[in-house]
Amino acid sequence: MTTKKFMFVNRKAPYGSIYALESLEVVLITAAFDQDVSLAFVDDGVYQLKKGCQTKAIETKNFSPTYRALDGYDIEKLYVEKESLEARGLTEDDLLVDVTVLDSQSMGALMEEQDVVLSF
């Protein structure tokens, strides 16, 4: 089977809408297909990786720890756009998993390389 390059582009903050969780579930399910998967976090999507989320008071399941499971699913290519972090007063230290921080140009170039891009 030929391997294709898949990228999941995450652009929404978690918990305020269902996009982040839906994306994460699709990523976990499709991990079984052994493709070349990259996750991109841009715009408000960078908040998905924010440390210290506590969802008890909003009575919503806290899926932040699940991003730490991605490594075990062999999903190791996580990219975060530098400009998106900066616009939100965040740095790499605020994130709960290891990522590669890219500037906008590099992120755009990486998107161009993909066979399939799924946007959430």
Partner: peptide, 21 residues
């Protein structure tokens, strides 16, 4: 406040904004 907590940003509220439950 519960929404600040859920997004992990309770500790970086700017001055002048009041948190409410």
């Amino acid at each position: 406040a519960p929404d600040l907590e859920a997004r992990g940003v309770s500790d970086r509220l700017i001055d002048g904004v009041t948190g409410v439950d």
